[in-house]
């Protein structure tokens, strides 16, 4: 069996779903952030697979796109963790289902 594009796409889809489940189901804010990171990485994996198996003009632009995604992910983590810290400082918890000030 030849390992081709489909293998990487299925792997990326699987990883995306695991990340999605973590982001939806975890209580802890940092746990949710971990899930989001996994989803972003799954997308990156898919893009790099397309870069390897796609046409020549796709090859470069997908990799540039991956670089941008990594940069944005880094920014997102920094701000997200700072938010988690502030939430903890004000509410003494970073559990996402106990921060319900707007629930009325």
């Amino acid at each position: 069996m030849i390992i081709g594009l489909e293998h990487y796409l299925v792997l990326g889809a699987l990883l995306f779903c695991i990340g999605f489940f973590i982001a939806l189901s975890k209580k802890n804010a940092v746990g949710v952030l971990i899930g989001v990171e996994l989803m972003l990485n799954a997308v990156n994996l898919t893009l790099v697979a397309f870069s390897r198996f796609g046409t020549a003009e796709v090859a470069l632009s997908t990799q540039v796109f991956v670089v941008f995604i990594i940069a944005v992910a880094a920014a997102e983590v920094a701000v997200g963790l700072a938010l988690a810290l502030v939430v903890y400082r004000n509410r003494q918890t970073i559990s996402v289902d106990r921060t319900t000030l707007l629930k009325g």
């Binding site: 802890n28 983590v77 920094a78 988690a84 810290l85 918890t93 970073i94």
Partner: peptide, 17 residues
């Protein structure tokens, strides 16, 4: 960075359930 953020919260908040 994540480990740092976790360390800055007390142990009761390190639950990942």
């Amino acid at each position: 960075l994540m480990l740092f953020a976790i360390m800055l919260t007390p142990r009761a908040e390190r639950d990942n359930s």
